[in-house]
Design a protein around this nucleic acid. Structure first.
Ligand SMILES: NC(=O)c1ccc[n+]([C@@H]2O[C@H](COP(=O)([O-])OP(=O)(O)OC[C@H]3O[C@@H](n4cnc5c(N)ncnc54)[C@H](O)[C@@H]3O)[C@@H](O)[C@H]2O)c1
Ligand SMILES: NC(=O)c1ccc[n+]([C@@H]2O[C@H](COP(=O)([O-])OP(=O)(O)OC[C@H]3O[C@@H](n4cnc5c(N)ncnc54)[C@H](O)[C@@H]3O)[C@@H](O)[C@H]2O)c1
Lengths: 213, 213
DNA sequence: CAGAGTTTGTGCCAATTTTCACAAAGTATA
DNA sequence: TATACTTTGTGAAAATTGGCACAAACTCTG
């Protein structure tokens, strides 16, 4: 264990390990080595050990990691021993897909509200959630103690919606709109720009020959 | 200009610059400095210059960059002077959202086919695309010269579908399934794990106090 | 319980990426 | 045209990140 800053990549990978470990516990596998865990996650054994090392010492030399213990420890550290309340703004194609996805709840991410400015969308029921008008946003966000917001509105609406959320104390935002959001330093934004992901892949194709020349 | 390997992050950011520059051209703004471009994209001026520097010299000292020229140059370099054929496998909630999204085509990413193993989904029309049965995949992928595949099937189906695509010569894959895919070295996979993105954000909340302590 | 084998945790090094900083090259003005 | 100002392009420094390698810690077997 050390006090050094944990790299962003490590945090992301830790959740991969946790996902795998959870699977192993279900399969009644009690022990796993960093090498095996790396194999299953397409990462190196050294990477696995180094990543876990940021959070503590969980392993046993010569034996590996106890899956149940590691699972419990990681869940505690990562804040997975509680659920997080999430709100989706924009109940269009993408917003709807997110609202109906059961995988979030399974992982402690509880979508508790959805908003849309279009009256035709308002009132729609999706799973347990009813789409509410944008006017309700301030009240509901505070009442339901939402700490994570998802932006699924068109790009030119994104900054405005973001400002509302930030003002209400939402601490982080997952942004699907292809635009750069401005937020204060204490708010964390994660962009998911799908066009850009595909474009980056296409660039790989453009330069494939070069790479292997 | 140099022959050095271009960092992945640079490639991703270059598309951000291009998006912004395209906007500027539309707004009839003819010139922009690295500082201004950085401002608009939440990146540093040095980062902007260094990134562009991997691809050539586009600026004019004392003046900045000509937006139209930079746009044309970047589009050429990035392979945006042509379109890429994309196929979506899995026409469920997420797949449908992707199929109806007009933003891809605008950026030269042409979804030309969609497949689903569920007969209830097959035949559905979404924009110009009709969902086809999985059996048609090999024929269609080759006929339509698909070079990018999008995996939007459940996690346990993902590897099987991936293997099919890889076998047919698809060069890169955007994977939405929360699982680690195994592919040969010459195939590029980009994972979009939305649960993990949200989890990573929640970790930020857990450690927010610590960060500012 | 001794000796062989396994696996962790981590210091150190290598590679990559970002930031700094400034000479060189331009613009603008009068 | 000269002078002041602006901005680029890029080496060199700093920071971050990933991989190696091995002592130490533990297990397993006979
Ligand atoms: N659908 C995709 O596959 C896809 C892919 C990449 C990026 N995106 C991005 O994700 C975002 C959403 O995409 P989508 O396909 O769901 O679009 P969509 O048009 O289907 O849905 C957007 C929704 O936002 C609502 N809205 C508009 N302004 C609003 C506001 N100010 N407050 C609240 N709601 C508002 C609209 O009424 C609509 O229901 C867009 O920014 C888009 O560029 C989507
Ligand atoms: N919807 C979301 O918001 C969301 C969020 C995070 C991750 N994901 C992931 O994205 C993937 C798709 O999610 P979804 O919500 O669209 O699920 P979904 O169940 O709505 O759609 C999956 C589709 O894949 C089809 N399918 C199943 N096996 C197939 C196969 N072998 N070949 C072709 N098609 C097959 C199904 O018939 C179904 O239509 C899943 O892996 C999910 O975990 C989705």
């Amino acid at each position: 264990m050390n006090n050094k800053k944990v790299p962003e990549g490590t945090i992301s990978r830790i959740f991969i390990y946790l996902r795998e470990i959870t699977e192993l516990v279900k399969l009644n596998i009690h022990t796993i080595s960093s090498a095996e865990l790396g194999e299953r996650t397409n990462l190196s054994d050294a990477q696995v050990r180094k990543d876990l090392g940021y959070f503590g010492q969980f392993g046993v030399s010569g034996a590996g990691y106890n899956t149940q213990e590691l699972k419990t420890a990681l869940e505690k550290i990562l804040g997975k021993d509680r659920a997080w309340n999430v709100a989706v703004v924009g109940a269009g194609h993408l917003g709807s897909a997110l609202l109906t996805y059961p995988g979030f709840k399974e992982r402690g991410l509880d979508i508790v509200a959805a908003f849309d400015s279009d009256s035709r969308k308002v009132g729609k029921q999706m799973k347990e959630i009813t789409v509410q008008p944008l006017e309700e946003l301030p009240r509901v966000i505070q009442q339901k103690k939402v700490s994570i917001g998802i932006i699924a509105v068109p790009a030119k609406e994104a900054q405005g919606v973001t400002d509302m959320l930030v003002k209400l104390g939402v601490g982080c935002i997952l942004n699907f709109a292809p635009t750069s959001l401005n937020v204060p330093d204490n708010v964390k934004v994660k962009d998911v720009d799908l066009s850009r992901e595909l474009e980056t892949l296409s660039y790989f194709l453009v330069n494939k020959k070069a790479q292997y020349a």
